[in-house]
Nucleic acid binder design. Sequence first.
DNA 1: CAGGCCCCCC
DNA 2: TTTAGAGGGGGCCTGA
Length: 941
Amino acid sequence: MTSQDCDKKLFLLDAYALIFRAYYAFIKNPRINSQGINTSAIFGFTNTLFDLIKKENPSHLAVVFDVGETFRHREYKEYKANRQETPEAIRIAVPYIHQILEALKIPCMSKEGYEADDVIGTLAKKAEREGYTTYMMTSDKDYAQLVSENIFVFKPASRGNDIEIWDIEAVKDKFQVETPSQVIDLLGMMGDNVDNIPGIPGVGEKTAKQFIKEYGSIENLFAHSSELKGKMREKVEANKELGLLSKKLATIETNVPIEFNYESLTVDKPNVDQVIKIFEDLEFRNMIVNFKKTYPNIFESENGPEKDLSNSVSVTGQRSLFDTLDQDIEMKESSNWKTIENTDHLYQLTETPMAVKLLVEKLSKQNIVCFDTETTSTDSMIAELVGISFSYEKAKGYYVPFNTKDKEKTQELIEILRPFFENENIAKVGQNLKYDYKVLRRYQVEVKGILFDTMIAHYLINPDARHNMDILAETELNYKPISIESLIGKKGKNQKLFSSVPLDEQKEYAVEDSDITLQLKNKLDPQLAKDNLKKLFTEIEMPLMKVLVDMEWCGINLDIHALQDMSKELVEDLSRLEKEIYSLAGEVFNINSPKQLGDIIFDKLKLGNKPKKTKTGQYATGEEVLLKLAHTHKIIDLLLEYRQLQKLKSTYVDALPDEVNPITKRVHTTFAQTVAATGRLASNNPNLQNIPIRTPRGQEIRKAFISKDHNHKIISADYSQIELRIIAAMSKDSAMINSFNNGEDFHKATASKVFHIPMDQVTKEQRSHAKTINFGIIYGVSAFGLSEQTGLSRSESKNLIDAYYAAYPELKKYISEQIETARKNGFVETLLGRRRYLPDIHSKNNVVRSHAERNAVNAPIQGTAADVIKIAMIKIHELLHEKNYQTKLLLQVHDELVFDAPDEEIKEVSALIKNTMENSVRMEVPLIVDVGVGTNWLEAH
DNA sequence: CAGGCCCCCC
DNA sequence: TTTAGAGGGGGCCTGA
């Protein structure tokens, strides 16, 4: 489409529809900039706008905002008192978006008392009459009203880059209706799927669609409702008013008293400087690039006439139409980062042995010193030291560089530093100390003394946040440190080694890190105390860090040959499956591509009557979806098997041998102590917390984790149902506690209670259902979720949940108390006071709030379980060391500990482990630990 | 190269 | 078309 073709086109955008859409697209992972602003909505909105401009280059366009209280808002409020209110992030976003639009010279409109949809509808009709083609972006539920000859509808992309333009035929096809008015009726009937519209309670969407098709319109349906039968008739008749109101609320006003003036909706050339300034303030760095791509003409000649553009006088005049919204909302003050040049600091280079000796002397007079190692790699098992920085006073510090090529000299300097690191009386501060600890250990230096890791401190203070030093410096100290990327480049294969950076820059960067970290410590330490997190920090997390170091350091033995054999088998099986799949599909395609796979299953083979789609518009092809289709075509089983084998091969069988350390010949995972918001650990590179166990083929993989040699065995000790026991103890539910104290099969006991039958008559199926609810309770069940899981109907599931709460009344009370606590305090706590903040608990958005409410229940349980096992780990580590056992703790998998033990220790150590784990925390419910021994992990489990 | 999708674990 | 619908994680692969 060329720009000439655009002459008579008008684009109309519903601002809030776009903003909300963008906001929700990022709801699970919102974009928060360093000023703490949730920029999801602004970002998404701007992105979509740019997409539109890139694709259509519109000459005439208006972004339409809702203003004031409109008819529909009022009506709806009466129907439902707790109307959704605007999320905070959107309130913040709106003024920014206005600024952006103003800088882009894109006209805005609004009309007091009418919704954007009404304004758009009216303008569209008027434009249509004057022969213009109109493209509308409105909230989807409303557009159908406006479908007519010259009006098109376009849909924003939710995250990707594609805007779809639907023509009338396509829209009709999607709705499977003939006339626009039918579409409106249909939409009015969509009931609780459309959160603004009540619909006809009790009449399902499909049924409603059917009725309307039969009767032609909703009014007609009500007029002839006596023809309906039974329950349906009752429901339809009982809800006549609501049904009509639904339609009224869904109807768009197309007679808004507003002038239509095509010329006034002209898009001007943007004020480049102004746009860039806003993006910079918001930290939208990529958006600036996007901006330049979106307006290629303006940026073609960088030195060209674009300077004049900013002075261009042609103002669209549309701002006057927009009158009320942004006046009372002030822009958040943009903070001024101090730059390093402005900061007075004294960072000294300490190169020679003599100078380092003097430094160590100074350091030994200190009580607290912050240090940070600079290395050649982020992998502590291979990283080589490039330098170490030290700081014990604000704005002061030292940097000891090493010559990576001269090992002897490096070791010489390290020997001089050793007394400092091994001095028990000097507390050491650092960011992510586990890393430095491990690096130094490879140089035979053992860090001693009290440790303070700022990353862990911040994790305890706000577990949901990110804990990078850069971010901490910005949020806690309002200071922007030198970025590592500015020294060694963006990560990737072209990234330089830190050792290649000029010494002076190394020094500035490295010492700044120590300097800042020390300041962070001073800031975070009192916060820990204030939030009663000191104990958790000093008695659990910091000691645990050392335990983790030993675990990672030790690594685990892997039977590479077994895996290699398995890989060969898998290759054969996969290629056999591949051939069969291709022949069944009738063509060759990439089975690993969900996109291509979806097209084959749903478009070509036409399996399943209403395929689900993912956010991006592809067909969903997840395991559950495929399982439901299993009976329809042979190909499905093959695909499922293919997927399973492919996963095992790529993630485990082929990947694990690559992770074997060439020197130790063992696999060294890394435990992340600060990523899981609940307090759990996470494992990566490789992840040894998700080694298969369910399927026979998966078990073969677990079998490849073997003991050190034939004089050693693997010991696996796992807590039995720890989370259920914890929820029993924390809720103090007497029925639950009794059940555990009596050593009953808890799931069976639950089944007996909810189905009201004696224990010995519980069937397997009933026990399994009970088990599902038991876990559901931990995660926060809904009847919907339970019915999906169990295959029971939704009402059966609901009854089951009710019966469950009746059986465990105190548990029910506990759940509501947790939610109440979260509302009142803003956070919930584990047994040991580990916090999780849940600001969304106050959200007016159902989805968001419910999520927070489930977290209010789940976080303390999952977190307490994490606390318990962490204590056990520390104690066991201590005891093993004390009694000089050679048994090593290797892995932690949330409720399981895995050890490598010499044969002669197994008996004693097994007892020690069991005993320590079971008694690490005293509760009203016994903690039970099962211990297993074997030559490999599978056998031990 | 990042994010979507999927699947592995507790 | 329009979601999501039980918590917490990590990793592979495609597609731009």
